[in-house]
């Protein structure tokens, strides 16, 4: 058996690869469902019904898609420049912290001023915190995979300290949570009596924005060039360090915006379970999308379907909702394999 490179990639292969990969992943996971003693068709039917079966289910899934789009974009932008930002989770919380700092009474502004301010503040907080590992990378060659990952834990513990200490809301009956965001700072709902909020539109707009940035702008050109070959980019006179730093600000900013979105769109106050790992799942979302900013919308939606659907599946059947983690993880592996297979064809001999 050997691999031979394919000459030209047709569009159907490029698009069909991920779809087939996801199908393969679900086929593999059906073995686990059988093992747990349930019917595969019923389980998947429950999964899709739970995620897409009603107006409410769809709104819940889209609400979950929102932060995933933003953290997915954060990873996609950074990975394009080969800046391995694994710190989306920390940047998410930094964004939420900044929004809490600005939005709980310090600024008594109307909505049309306060909400943009919270987003800008959150994006800055997320971007600036990523600068720390990025500077260590560009100046001292410190591996950013390690530093961004470990910074997550530092930030989480710091948030922990804030919520149990100085930021603890005295009205929260002892729960570790910060004071609620002012009503002016909350995002309006998109659908009545659902949790789907205007943040979804912001996430969609961010996708289109990032896509346009990468495709049409000088900055995007520089990011792609530095990612493709830092050596050749530097030789041609492209400012490599400046580009990496700029990428870090954009990437961290997007993750920070995700935190703001969840805080002022959904929860209303900062807690330690604001994110069930959105920062990390963003990496999967970005990889599933092949780092394409528009593809991130679809992969984020898929991941949200799987997670939301798995919850209702586990309620209806005896399948644990951990199956969601298994499905997304298997999908990621399958997509990686499919990327290999779209570039190369296997020759059996």
């Amino acid at each position: 058996m050997r691999l031979e490179p394919r000459d030209n990639l047709s569009l159907s292969i490029t698009l069909g690869g991920p779809v087939l990969a996801v199908a393969a992943a679900m086929a593999i996971c059906s073995l686990l469902i059988i093992w747990s003693g349930s019917s595969v068709t019923e389980a998947y039917a429950q999964l899709f019904k739970g995620a897409l079966g009603s107006r409410f289910a769809i709104s819940e899934t889209l609400a979950r898609t929102t932060p995933l789009i933003l953290t997915g974009l954060a990873a996609a932008v950074a990975f394009r420049a080969k800046l391995w930002n694994i710190g989306g989770e920390g940047q998410f919380y930094m964004g939420a912290c900044a929004a809490t700092l600005l939005g709980t009474g310090q600024l008594d502004w109307p909505s049309y001023l306060l909400i943009p301010t919270l987003f800008i503040g959150g994006a800055l907080a997320g971007g600036l915190i990523l600068l720390l590992p990025t500077m260590l990378k560009t100046r001292l060659n410190v591996d950013e995979v390690v530093t961004t990952l470990l910074l997550n834990f530092i930030i989480l513990l710091f948030v922990n300290y804030l919520l149990f200490g100085p930021w603890k809301d005295p009205m929260a009956m002892g729960w570790p949570q910060a004071e609620p965001i002012l009503d002016e700072g909350l995002l309006p709902a998109l659908l009545e009596r659902t949790r789907l909020h205007a943040g979804f539109l912001i996430a969609l707009a961010s996708s289109v924005g990032v896509w346009a940035l990468m495709r049409f702008t000088v900055w995007g050109y520089e990011i792609r060039a530095v990612g493709a070959s830092p050596k050749a980019a530097g030789f041609a006179g492209i400012p490599v360090r400046r580009t990496v730093v700029r990428t870090a600000l954009i990437s961290g900013g997007l993750a920070g915006m995700a935190g703001v979105c969840e805080l002022i769109g959904l929860k209303g106050y900062l807690t330690l379970d604001l994110s069930p790992g959105f920062g990390y799942t963003g990496i999967v979302v970005a990889m599933l999308a092949g780092l394409n900013p528009l593809g991130v919308i679809f992969s984020a939606f898929f991941v949200a379907v799987v997670y939301n659907g798995a919850d209702s599946m586990s309620r209806a059947l005896s399948v644990s909702n951990y199956i969601a983690d298994v499905i997304t993880a298997t999908s990621l592996l399958a997509v990686l394999v499919s990327v290999l297979l779209t570039r190369y064809r296997i020759k059996w001999k």
């Binding site: 049409f216 702008t217 000088v218 900055w219 050109y221 792609r224 060039a225 493709a228 070959s229 050596k231 050749a232 980019a233 030789f235 041609a236 006179g237 492209i238």
Partner: peptide
């Protein structure tokens, strides 16, 4: 490895030393 960026297109490589000039970009747009 140094002269060209293999994963980018011919157009993009031909502009890698001059993309910042006004004939190739304006207001940050290519």
């Amino acid at each position: 490895g140094t002269g060209l960026i293999g994963d980018m297109s011919i157009t993009e490589n031909l502009a890698s030393e001059s993309y910042r000039e006004r004939r190739f970009s304006r207001f940050g747009l290519l």
